[in-house]
Design a protein around this nucleic acid. Structure first.
Lengths: 142, 142
DNA sequence: TATATTCCCGACTTATTTAGTCAACTATAA
DNA sequence: TTATAGTTGACTAAATAAGTCGGGAATATA
């Protein structure tokens, strides 16, 4: 089990965005340089974040992105599901085809994976973007 | 994030083993047939389970495997780590190379992943093999 | 002792997913 | 009118996971 870098990057980038947003929007170029994430890859990621209304885009020169809500209103679970890091460990569907109908021993372990899903999801639902972005972290570095 | 099928199979197979063990050892062939998991793949998995002293093997005709301890003494975390499902979401090492030293904003999110690791690990540490294998599940099907 | 069964083990192939790139476009500030 | 920055789909490369193969060793039983 692992979290892929896409979700990690999304969280990192949004933390950066939260910290560096002041008056104007923050460009991906800047985030890319600061966080050392490929610009082209960031574009892919922010496309999804925009579709899920986590960020808003401003085009053109001086353009960039800004959060569409307060950081304290954005759950990490939303971010991860936006970039398709679906915290869904196992789907029974595959097995159904082979005779797993929820009654047989084959399904003995399903409840376990369901519980696990719930366990992980609740972790990310409790965490807010604002929990990660502390202004003082930023100031220390300047 | 997802749990791979290797870990899933390991848990399924051991649940099966627990339920079907009576006097003699249980062969992988039987588990393979009941759980619909490739025999060759099971061999791979049980090799690791044996190395980690979760099961013991009995060779030869009428051979097979048995648990090396009571099911109530086997944590799921052991099973998963045996088959290399290391529940380690992110290692900072990769990033260190690119300048992540635990102080910069790049590491802002690390604490998060560490917490997540702990959260998931504690889930699997609390769960025992015996929690999954209930004799009555078996009897219902006979 | 011969044979079938079962575990043992490394190497190999294939499939799937993730990570990252490219090219061509649209909008807008200066 | 030009440089900047987001938009989009398609593409490639790399990594990982899943699964297979072939040959070997141990042992119960006939």
């Amino acid at each position: 089990m692992k979290l892929t870098s896409k979700g990690r990057y999304a969280v990192m980038a949004l933390t950066d965005l939260t910290l560096y947003y002041k008056n104007g929007p923050v460009s991906l170029r800047d985030i890319s340089l600061r966080q050392n994430i490929s610009l082209l890859y960031l574009e892919q990621i922010f496309l999804k974040l925009r579709k899920y209304k986590i960020v808003e885009s401003i085009r053109g020169k001086k353009g960039g992105y800004r959060l569409s809500r307060k950081a304290s209103d954005i759950r990490l679970s939303e971010i991860l599901s936006a970039v398709d890091e679906n915290v869904k460990t196992v789907r029974c569907i595959k097995h159904l085809k082979k005779g797993c109908n929820g009654k047989s021993i084959k399904c003995n372990t399903h409840k376990l994976w369901d519980e696990l899903d719930g366990h992980i999801n609740s972790f990310f639902e409790k965490k807010l973007l604002s929990d990660l972005a502390h202004k003082n972290d930023l100031e220390k570095r300047l």
